[in-house]
Design a protein around this nucleic acid. Structure first.
Length: 226
DNA sequence: ACAGCAATAT
DNA sequence: GATATTGCTG
């Protein structure tokens, strides 16, 4: 079967490669396809699914309205093709995701299937949840609660208390000697760090504003000299 | 068939 | 580089 992949929008300038099915020999002979010269039709997935109904929505209407953008007929045809076009995890979707995760938070095995079921979002496949879960875990594992750990508690490791660093910017800013207290709470994963197994935190409603917070590019200033 | 991770693609 | 999709493996 021919490669029917890469079917991005825009007209495909490929004029169908002439089927040179001459000899019936190797069927995988035509591996070199000229149609591989597609330079991403710059189809920036903007995910225009912002205006979801129901639920809070801090829409930013007014102001700049797209110059050439009018609610005209747009799309409406099911793409027969199969290529999954990047699933856009809108905050709403992610919210449900996290919500479901919380519900399953008690159990460590937050299986994608359970999550998907709890999300009650049709159109969402297991793989999508799985993938998202992977990312989610990656971001949560790396920084579980890095801010909640002030006291140095690392067995075996020699972690000197990082109280004061070589302050060179100590100009004469009066006696404001409290440059530290970036107490950040709520890093994400809940339940799991506390010995109090069981259920913790009931419904903690409200905590969303826009875009998830896991992707907080919090580069830890872990200065580890070689 | 499901779940996790690695590789790959956008 | 981040994020999503696909493939592979337990």
């Amino acid at each position: 079967m021919p490669f029917s992949r890469y079917s991005s929008s825009s007209s495909v300038p490929v004029t169908t490669v002439s089927l040179a099915a001459a000899t019936k020999e190797e069927k995988e002979d035509s591996a070199m396809n000229r149609l591989s010269l597609l330079t991403t039709p710059s189809v920036k997935d903007g995910c225009g699914s912002r205006g979801s109904r129901s639920s809070s929505n801090r829409a930013v209407s007014s102001s700049s309205s797209p110059p050439t953008l009018q609610p005209s007929l747009r799309a409406s045809s099911l793409q027969q093709n199969a290529r999954k076009q990047r699933r856009c995890w809108s905050p709403e979707l992610h919210r449900r995701f996290v919500n479901a995760l919380q519900k399953l938070g008690g159990s460590q095995a937050a299986t994608p299937k359970q999550i998907r079921e709890l999300m009650q979002v049709d159109g969402l496949t297991n793989d999508e949840v799985k993938s998202h879960l992977q990312k989610y875990r990656l971001h949560t594992r790396r920084v579980p609660a890095a801010s909640a750990n002030q006291p140095v508690v690392v067995l075996g490791g020699l972690w000197m208390s990082q109280d004061q660093y070589n302050d060179s910017s100590k100009v004469s800013s009066s006696g404001s000697g409290s440059p530290q207290s970036p107490l950040h709470l709520g890093a994400g994963s809940r339940g799991g760090t506390s010995p109090t197994e069981g259920d913790s935190m009931e419904d903690d409603e409200d905590a969303r504003s826009e875009s998830y917070s896991w992707k907080s590019h919090t580069h830890k200033p872990g200065k580890v000299d070689v």
